[in-house]
Write a protein that binds this DNA or RNA. Structure first.
Lengths: 111, 111
DNA sequence: AGCTTATATGAGTCAATTCTAATATGATCG
DNA sequence: CGATCATATTAGAATTGACTCATATAAGCT
């Protein structure tokens, strides 16, 4: 499943937002998403599985709980895809700074 | 339609990639996507409409042709959403450069 | 004007996705 | 141990989304 397909669902985006604020148990996230979207525990669990399968999150077992952590990999892919559009909104000087920030992943012109 | 829902489709992503390389007519893009994905002109036109409706592209009329241009707005939204995850992969110093690059859109701590 | 090219739209079909309901697994606690 | 809590899984129903086919609109050509 392509990273963008995963991000195409609002519940999954919300789950990732929650994890971005710090580790969360399945239960905490379920409680929140349940009130916000009105879906069942089962549905949330299925979304969490999709996030795990696509590498967006990992879960560590803590007793009866699963603690979820967001993972950078697929998010970077998305960010990388966006690179080709940065020129359309980033002023030139700032673009240079971004270039530096990104560690000049790719060389665009000869030295 | 949320920006990420729009990007969730591979044909639409491809169309945006093509526009990112420069303005394109509907016909040019249709020809390419048709060979790559094997879908009809109608399907491509419907995808282009979704891109227009969501503000990802605008079309200018040139005789019988429509020339499409990619628009920054929604792409920036996506980039902004990604900000909250940057800390998970950007080393601290580079994060600072990104901060500069983004013009310090938001203040995170008191002066 | 009539034919062709370029693109868009609408209706209906089909497949993929998401949801609920029911159930399973495993930890915890009395 | 039996009950309960936390989470996952499976099966099937409901929904959504993308596609094709047919048709519409408008420009360009002869």
């Amino acid at each position: 499943m392509h990273a963008f397909d995963v991000l195409g669902d609002p519940v999954r985006r919300r789950l990732l937002e929650l994890m971005a604020e710090g580790e969360r148990s399945s239960g905490e996230m379920t409680a929140i998403v349940l009130t916000e979207f009105g879906i069942t525990q089962s549905a949330v669990s299925q979304h969490l599985r999709i996030l795990r399968d696509a590498g967006f999150a990992t879960a560590r077992i803590d007793g009866a709980r699963r603690i979820y952590t967001v993972e950078a990999g697929p998010m970077r892919e998305v960010d990388l895809w966006l690179d080709r559009f940065r020129g359309f909104w980033t002023p030139k000087l700032e673009a240079l700074a971004t270039e530096v920030a990104r560690g000049k992943r790719q060389r665009r012109d000869k030295p």
